[in-house]
Simulated scan of single mutants.
Amino acid sequence: MTNELQGRVAIVTGGASGIGRGIVERFVAEGANVVIADVQDELGAALAERSGPNAVFRHTDVGDQDQMSALVDATVERFGALDVMVNNAGISSPLRRGLFSEDLTEFDRVMRVNLLSVMAGTRDAGRYMADHGGGSIINLSSIGGIQAGGGVPVYRASKAAILHFTKCAAIELAHYEIRVNCIAPGNIPTPILQSSATGQDRERLERFEARIRAQMRDDRPLKRDGTPEDVAEAALYLATERSRYVTGIVLPVEGGTTAGKVMVRKPSPEENGARQ
């Protein structure tokens, strides 16, 4: 570790598990003071304890604007600053049998957690950063927001909106030396995929997830599965001075999936034009 975030203060929403936990662990390892914001109290508290004195847990419903504002205030009170805001928290919408089966009952909840939280987190962190020399805001979207596809339309719509909002915020907040960027993960094994499959017993759920994972693997150029640590490396780059001239970007971390479909078979070196 290089202590790239030594003395910096960060918030990671949805930080108790999955990608959020990976980001928390990486930031702490690089010397940051981190506030873990989540509704999973047991997981969040345990992660904070394992991470040592540089991490604290705060119960936060990110879909509540008042709680998001209080999160920023509490972070500044606890650590004296806020340098990096990672808006990571998110949920899936249920996977149903086609658009005609969608009743959209989850629309308000998914949009509140996935999109409103990002907008409020960017606004509230930005307000502080504007008066304190700038900072870095990192919003988590998904390849589901870049690439169209069937299923979970509310989830996809919420993630697509994050991409556009991030670019708009980057333009507006650049005046204050605040960089706003977006990471779009894909094919990262986390509990969010399971949450999209409702009304299924455990065995069917496991078969469903295995089938989806296999399809994702077939569709991407890099065949190894991504990990939360891969996303955390991207977040670290966007949080540090290495990206000081980078704002308004969308960085896919998904093994090349959005680049295009893979060939049916792996070509030989000769077919690929490799020198002998």
Rank of each mutant, 00 (worst) to 15 (best):
T122A: 11
P228L: 14
G18C: 09
N114M: 10
T190Q: 04
G63W: 01
Y155N: 00
A169M: 07
V264F: 09
I162D: 00
S69F: 09
T198L: 14
N87Y: 07
F79C: 05
G256I: 09
I91P: 08
G145N: 04
A125V: 01
F100M: 07
A232N: 15
S141R: 05
S17I: 13
V72K: 03
R97E: 15
V12T: 04
A89N: 08
F27N: 02
A274F: 10
Q276I: 14
V180H: 07
L5M: 08
R217V: 12
K266S: 05
R207Y: 10
A148T: 13
S195Y: 15
G14R: 03
R265N: 10
A81K: 06
Q200M: 15
N88D: 13
H132D: 03
V246N: 06
G186M: 01
Q276V: 13
L236Q: 10
F57H: 04
A32H: 11
V231N: 06
G90R: 12
G151H: 05
I178M: 01
A130I: 02
R156F: 00
D218L: 15
T190C: 03
R123Y: 07
V35W: 10
N114P: 09
F208M: 14
G80M: 04
L99T: 06
G260I: 05
T60C: 11
T105V: 09
G90I: 12
I183G: 00
N3T: 13
V72I: 06
M68T: 01
R97S: 13
A148V: 14
G44D: 02
G126W: 02
A70M: 03
E172H: 06
V152N: 03
D219K: 15
E254R: 14
R179W: 10
I249N: 04
F100N: 05
G226A: 14
L82E: 01
I178K: 04
A16Q: 08
S142K: 05
G133R: 04
G255I: 10
C168R: 06
A89G: 08
V86T: 07
A81V: 05
D83N: 10
G186S: 00
E25F: 02
L115D: 12
A274M: 11
A120G: 15
S142M: 07
T227C: 11
G260V: 03
Y245M: 09
K223L: 09
P53C: 13
F27W: 00
P221F: 15
E4S: 13
Q6R: 12
G150W: 05
G149T: 10
T247I: 02
